[in-house]
């Protein structure tokens, strides 16, 4: 691999690591807000007087 290759790889890895982390936070935030459900069966039923 050439030097330039290593430079490109370093930028790509930085993007992947930090982008992936930011995405993970966003996803978990959405789950915590109840905008997204990861495990459908575990969600409380509406007839119990709770929304999703």
């Amino acid at each position: 691999m050439t030097d330039a290759g290593f430079v490109i790889a370093s930028w790509a890895i930085t993007g992947l690591v930090l982008g992936g982390y930011a995405l993970r936070i966003a996803l978990r935030t959405a789950v915590a807000r109840g905008e997204k459900t990861l495990f459908k069966p575990a969600a409380p039923k509406p007839e119990n007087g709770l929304d999703q």
């Binding site: 691999m1 030097d3 290593f6 890895i13 930085t14 690591v17």
Partner: peptide, 13 residues
């Protein structure tokens, strides 16, 4: 972790 990864990528060339 990123610092270590980048350090490794820098160290190689």
């Amino acid at each position: 972790g990123l610092t270590l990864l980048l350090g490794s990528l820098w160290g190689r060339p």
